[in-house]
């Protein structure tokens, strides 16, 4: 089995929300794979990025979260984060983007919020 620093799992919830679950490290080396994974998700569905098992995220990783944000915004849907760590929360706040990327404790809460909003 190959070893991945970042694993990406994409699922579509029956309510019509795509959930992309990340585990591991999101940085300069792994960000391009997230980019491609996000690009392949259905454009017209809201998107949840599940960061519960994301151990590390740097500024390049944040740029990739923002790519997902821009993509959903352009398609007229929305994006929510789930399970953001306090450290990543601090990084997002420092970049001033915490208001654009609403974060929820669990995937279910994030899916629920998007489903109601959408």
């Amino acid at each position: 089995m190959p070893e991945y620093a970042l694993t990406i799992e994409v699922r579509t919830r029956p309510v019509g929300v795509t959930v992309v679950a990340l585990a591991g490290e999101l940085d300069h080396h792994t960000a391009p794979r997230l980019h491609r994974a996000v690009e392949r998700t259905a454009e017209d569905l809201p998107l949840v990025l599940d960061l519960t098992r994301l151990g590390f995220c740097d500024s390049v990783g944040v740029a990739e979260l923002l790519f997902a944000f821009r993509r959903t915004r352009a398609a007229g849907t929305s994006l929510a984060l789930a399970g953001t760590s306090p450290d990543l929360g601090r990084l997002l706040a420092m970049a001033g983007v915490d208001g654009l990327l609403p974060s929820h404790d669990t995937v279910d809460a994030a899916v629920g919020a998007l489903h109601r909003g959408g």
Partner: peptide
């Protein structure tokens, strides 16, 4: 615009971050 906050060191030797900030560039906000 979303950068690491600047650090200010006062003449008494204490240092603090100036944390007030806006949003990073490229999002048209």
């Amino acid at each position: 615009a979303g950068h690491l906050p600047p650090l200010l060191r006062l003449p008494d030797g204490s240092a603090r971050y100036l944390t007030e900030h806006g949003i990073l560039l490229g999002l048209n906000v």
